Simulated assay, not measured.
Amino acid sequence: MFVRTASERDLAAVRALLVETWHATYDAIYGVERVAEITDDWHSIASLKARLTRPNSEFLLADDGKRLGGMAFAAATTDPKIVLLNQLYVHPSCQRQGIGRALLEEVEASFPEAHTLRLEVEEANTVAIAFYRSNGFLPTGKTADCGGRSGLPALIFEKTIG
């Protein structure tokens, strides 16, 4: 898989990847109906399209020419030294193949002025927590509103970069 920038022609495939990955990851935590509600909102074509034109951001895909294996979206905060990794998802059939690490490395390289990479992760998502810890992230706090509009609690992790 190679990492590249997303384009509008990718959005249907990105949505399909996110819906499948979210159900595989979160159905046991939130239930099928709640996951469907979240993916219909957060991962709609309109929501994904808005990310393509967001200033100071990177929307990346892991692609082998036949299918998408993963995606990442990160954006600088009001403080350009802090970047928020909003999304990093790898299709369940592609996990543990270095795709998440490749996406993460490209996110870090995309923000050379940044010193901190921050993310929010569901506390019950132990696989993601282990991945982030193995890639140098440390817990720094909690939020009661993951993503700023979900009402879902999450852990906050940070990594020093640059």
Score class of each variant (00 low, 15 high):
118 R>Q: 02
69 G>M: 10
39 T>L: 05
111 F>Y: 06
122 E>I: 15
9 R>E: 14
99 I>V: 13
61 L>A: 03
97 Q>F: 08
20 E>H: 08
64 D>C: 04
52 L>Q: 06
5 T>E: 12
125 N>Q: 08
65 G>N: 07
45 I>W: 06
91 H>W: 04
130 A>Q: 10
142 K>G: 09
27 D>C: 11
46 A>D: 13
79 D>I: 06
30 Y>F: 15
112 P>T: 04
147 G>A: 09
106 E>V: 12
70 G>K: 02
64 D>P: 00
6 A>Y: 01
81 K>E: 14
151 G>H: 04
106 E>W: 10
95 Q>R: 15
103 L>K: 05
119 L>V: 05
87 Q>K: 15
90 V>Y: 08
43 H>S: 01
98 G>R: 05
126 T>S: 09
131 F>W: 13
116 T>M: 06
50 A>K: 12
91 H>M: 05
36 A>R: 15
130 A>H: 14
10 D>A: 03
151 G>T: 11
76 A>I: 07
52 L>G: 05
19 V>A: 03
102 A>P: 09
28 A>D: 12
123 E>V: 13
55 P>V: 02
9 R>Y: 13
2 F>M: 14
58 E>C: 15
78 T>H: 14
119 L>D: 01
153 P>V: 06
156 I>D: 14
57 S>M: 04
92 P>M: 08
63 D>K: 01
160 T>S: 11
95 Q>M: 12
117 L>I: 09
3 V>F: 05
113 E>P: 00
15 R>I: 10
85 L>E: 09
148 G>T: 01
47 S>G: 08
9 R>G: 01
109 A>P: 05
7 S>V: 02
109 A>G: 12
119 L>C: 03
102 A>G: 06
50 A>P: 06
3 V>A: 00
19 V>K: 03
37 E>I: 08
60 L>N: 13
97 Q>N: 13
111 F>H: 06
88 L>R: 10
30 Y>D: 09
4 R>F: 03
141 G>F: 03
139 P>H: 10
57 S>T: 01
39 T>Q: 08
99 I>M: 01
83 V>I: 15
140 T>P: 03
49 K>V: 00
75 A>H: 11
112 P>D: 01
25 T>C: 08
34 R>N: 11
74 A>Y: 00
78 T>W: 07
142 K>W: 12
18 L>H: 05
117 L>W: 03
134 S>F: 12
13 A>F: 07
120 E>P: 10
58 E>Y: 01
88 L>V: 15
139 P>A: 03
15 R>A: 12
32 V>Y: 00
149 R>C: 00
61 L>W: 01
103 L>R: 04
135 N>D: 02
142 K>I: 10
79 D>F: 00
24 A>M: 04
151 G>S: 04
138 L>I: 13
61 L>C: 06
69 G>E: 14
17 L>P: 08
57 S>R: 00
140 T>M: 09
137 F>P: 12
82 I>W: 00
53 T>P: 03
35 V>C: 08
105 E>V: 11
99 I>H: 03
108 E>Q: 14
115 H>P: 01
5 T>K: 01
72 A>G: 09
27 D>P: 09
156 I>Y: 01
17 L>H: 11
149 R>A: 07
25 T>R: 02
10 D>G: 10
141 G>W: 08
34 R>M: 15
120 E>F: 00
123 E>D: 15
31 G>M: 07
6 A>H: 04
140 T>I: 14
132 Y>R: 05
98 G>H: 00
11 L>I: 03
28 A>Q: 09
123 E>C: 02
138 L>D: 11
152 L>M: 12
54 R>E: 10
